[in-house]
Simulated assay, not measured.
Amino acid sequence: MKTQRSIFLLLLCCLIVQNLATKRFLKFNEDGEFKIAQFTDLHFGVDRYDVKTIGVQRILLDLEQPDFVALTGDTITGRYSDTVEKGKKAWNKAVGEMAKRDIPWGLKQVQKGNCGNFNLEKIDLILKRLIKENPRLHGRFGYGCVQPNQIDWFNEVSSEFSREYPNHMGIVLFHIPLPEMLEFWHTDISFGTQEEIVCCPQNNTGLYQAMVDNGNIKLVLNGHDHINDYCTRSKSRAPDLWMCYGRKTGYGYYNPVPPMYHGARIIQLFNNQTTGTTFTTWIRDRQRRKIFQHLHKPDCILDEQCVLPKV
């Protein structure tokens, strides 16, 4: 490492552990840059949709040439991959384009087994694990929330990392948006589009506050809502902590409607010995457009609730 500034990347649900014949390290390049492409809600498992999704992946990977691809959930549709053979077929298609290009990748996934194609060390990019988001807590049903014991784990691991790398920049990735994504859309400045109600947990178990208390977490990435793609923050609580949706990449289930097209969120990281690690982000869509998103001013709607899932 050139400096003590590094990236701390948390993928909820999966520790990336697959060993290769030779170790692969994820590091800033010689110019101090590192690019992440976030593929979310791929929903592989139906051939006629998979062909289209692979086409989107090819466009995005060829245009952006990322150093790492993060898959933030709903990578494979379980109902269409209910056998080992079907699951293997869908899985191979989901990661095939990264494999062809030898691009490191990792994912948020509740399935057992290996979930990445590189070996990890505490160098410039670290990936850690939280247990899967639980849909039930304290008797209430809703979209998956993070359990208190998982937040305890987060506090323990992030504190340990902060001691070793006091100036690191933390990035947290998971699938389901936190309740604060809904709150800040209405109360603070955001960038991007909200085309559906935020499907966040009914229970707020405090992960956002834990990230604020950590002090080094600067970016949160999630998926789940297929036609939301905005970034938001709380200027009063944590002005440097941004939370962003990805852009839906896959064609399974419901989809964006033009002028919103399938795509990916791109995150460009910059490592500077003087200013530390900073980032910029944009959407790249299947139309090959690089989209810097429009400003959304707070509308002060304070009574909207996280939507309950259909059961």
Results as ranks from 00 to 15, higher is better:
Ala264Trp: 01
Glu133Ala: 15
Trp185Tyr: 13
Tyr80Arg: 06
Asn29Met: 09
Trp242Ala: 08
Val46Arg: 13
His175Leu: 09
Val95Gly: 05
Leu71Thr: 00
Val17Thr: 14
Asn214Ser: 09
Cys306Val: 00
Ile123Asp: 13
Gly139Ser: 07
Arg286Asp: 11
His296Phe: 01
Met260Lys: 15
Cys145Asp: 10
Arg140Ala: 13
Gln18Leu: 12
Thr205Gly: 00
Val84Cys: 02
Glu121Asp: 10
Leu295Gly: 05
Trp105Leu: 00
Met181Pro: 01
Met211Cys: 12
Val311His: 08
Asp213Thr: 14
Phe270Ala: 05
Gln4Ser: 14
Pro177Glu: 08
Gly252Asp: 12
Ile267Lys: 03
Phe34Ala: 01
Tyr143Glu: 03
Phe161Ala: 04
Leu26Met: 07
Met1Gly: 11
Ile197Pro: 04
Ile76Asp: 06
Thr249Tyr: 11
Leu26Arg: 01
Gln273Arg: 10
Glu97Cys: 10
Ala264Cys: 08
Thr53Cys: 03
Trp242Met: 11
Arg140Asp: 11
Leu127Gln: 14
His138Pro: 01
Gln57Arg: 03
Asn114Ile: 07
Arg24Cys: 06
Leu107Pro: 05
Lys86His: 08
Lys248Gln: 12
Lys86Ile: 06
Asp62His: 10
Ser162Tyr: 01
Leu241Tyr: 02
Ile126Gly: 01
Glu33Pro: 00
Glu196Ile: 11
Gly215Pro: 05
Glu64Leu: 15
Cys199Phe: 09
Lys35Gly: 02
Val307Gly: 09
Gly78Arg: 10
His168Met: 10
Ile16Trp: 01
Glu183Lys: 15
Asn255Phe: 01
Phe191Cys: 07
Lys100Gly: 03
Arg265Val: 02
His43Trp: 06
Arg286Trp: 07
Glu97His: 10
Pro309Leu: 04
Ile76Cys: 07
Asn155Gly: 10
Leu241Thr: 03
Tyr254Gly: 04
Asn271Gly: 14
His175Lys: 08
Ala210Thr: 13
Ile7Trp: 05
Ile59Asn: 00
Ile283Arg: 03
Phe161Gln: 07
Asn203Asp: 13
Thr281Gln: 12
Lys93His: 06
Tyr245Met: 06
Ile227Val: 14
Thr249Gln: 12
Tyr254Trp: 08
Leu295Gln: 13
Pro298Ile: 04
Thr232Ala: 02
Glu164Lys: 10
Thr275Met: 07
Gly252Leu: 09
Asp152Trp: 07
Gly116Lys: 09
Ile59His: 00
Arg24Lys: 13
Ile16Arg: 01
Val146Ala: 04
Leu308Gly: 02
Gln150Phe: 03
Ile171Asn: 03
Arg58Glu: 14
Thr274Ala: 11
Tyr80His: 15
Tyr245Ile: 05
Glu164Gly: 00
Gly223Trp: 08
Leu173Met: 15
Glu180Lys: 12
